[in-house]
Simulated scan of single mutants.
Amino acid sequence: MRDRGLKKKGFAEAELATAWQVASLLLGYPDEELLARRPLLRRAVAGLPAAAGTPLGGFLDHLDATLLRELESDYVETFDHRKRCCLYLTYYAYGDTRKRGMALLRFKQAYEAAGLVLDDGELPDHLAVVLEFAATGNLTEGRRLLLEHRAGLELLRLALTESRSPWSAVLEAVSATLPPLSGRNEEAVARLIAEGPPEEEVGLAPYGSGAGTSGPVFLPDPVLEARSS
């Protein structure tokens, strides 16, 4: 039986997968390969509901109008130099703490259960990776990961919008595929804006170390955790 919760108003499962795959590609580092895919991406976007198709199409217009070296420079300035524009989802809920290491392990185990093995140097919570997994690996599990980090996604969208980044259009499209923010999510976003991610002087433990665990590590929903603390 299919998960009825996967179908948000206006999006069929195939449309969700298409929107997430396109967004995944557009959130990767811009290069010649991405630019060469523009005609294919435009055809994919043309079949999407306007809530996702319009902002994704707008970002493709930006790719058409911008030199590659400018795209590369803007990408680094946006995502590598601004903490509030971090593409690593667990950062918003856990910061650089040991709890984040366990959250990363949960992502990795979800991917391995679907037969996806990442390179050792690739963190599994990068939004482009999560979206690709949701689109091509396991739609239900990928959506769950996105919803667990809904507050972080919204903070990222707001930060990109505030800085007038062209990538805000991609986050707008991703948000359109998810349920509207609830009261809990809105409070979690407000708290993240006010306080920022948690900090811990000891730093981040390696997510793959396992620390003696013998099975999946199930963590509480970061939104609920933020609400109750």
Rank of each mutant, 00 (worst) to 15 (best):
A14W: 09
A93R: 01
H81C: 05
D61K: 12
M102T: 12
E186P: 00
P39V: 12
G47A: 07
L67K: 14
A134Q: 12
Q109P: 04
H62W: 11
L155M: 10
L123T: 13
S165L: 04
A134S: 13
L6T: 09
A14F: 09
H126D: 03
P220F: 14
L34A: 03
A176N: 05
T213E: 13
E172W: 01
D221T: 00
V217M: 11
P222K: 05
R100Y: 07
L181C: 08
D221F: 10
P197W: 04
V174G: 00
R43Q: 15
L178R: 10
P206D: 05
S73I: 03
P222L: 05
T18M: 12
L146S: 03
L123I: 14
R98C: 05
K108S: 06
P220N: 12
V189F: 11
G183M: 14
A44I: 09
A173D: 01
P216W: 12
S24N: 09
D61M: 07
A51L: 12
P197T: 06
K83T: 04
E132T: 02
G28F: 03
A128R: 04
T140W: 03
N138G: 08
D74A: 13
G137R: 08
R82I: 01
A14M: 05
L155Y: 01
G208L: 08
T18C: 13
E141Y: 02
V76Y: 02
R184S: 13
L89S: 02
A188P: 08
L204A: 07
T90Y: 06
R84A: 12
D61V: 10
E122A: 14
P197Q: 01
M1K: 01
E141N: 03
L181E: 11
T18G: 05
G215M: 11
A51T: 12
L178D: 05
R150F: 02
L224A: 14
G203S: 09
A190G: 08
G208M: 09
L48G: 06
L127P: 00
A205G: 06
A103R: 14
F11T: 11
A52R: 05
R69C: 07
K8G: 09
T78Q: 02
R106C: 10
A51W: 06
D96T: 06
A17C: 10
R106K: 10
R164M: 03
V45R: 00
V130T: 13
L204V: 11
L153I: 09
G121C: 07
H81T: 10
L160D: 03
L56P: 00
L192H: 06
A93F: 02
W20H: 13
R82C: 01
P39Y: 08
C85Q: 14
P30L: 11
G121K: 15
P206R: 11
P166Y: 06
V202I: 14
G142S: 04
R98S: 01
S73E: 15
G58P: 03
R150N: 00
D61H: 09
V45A: 06
P198D: 01
A50T: 15
V76P: 00
L41S: 09
R82Y: 01
Y92H: 03
E77H: 12
A51F: 04
Y91A: 03
G10S: 13
L181G: 09
G28T: 06
T140E: 15
S24L: 10
L104A: 07
A50Q: 13
R191P: 00
F107C: 00
G210I: 03
L181R: 14
E32N: 07
E195Y: 07
E15F: 04
P39N: 11
V117E: 14
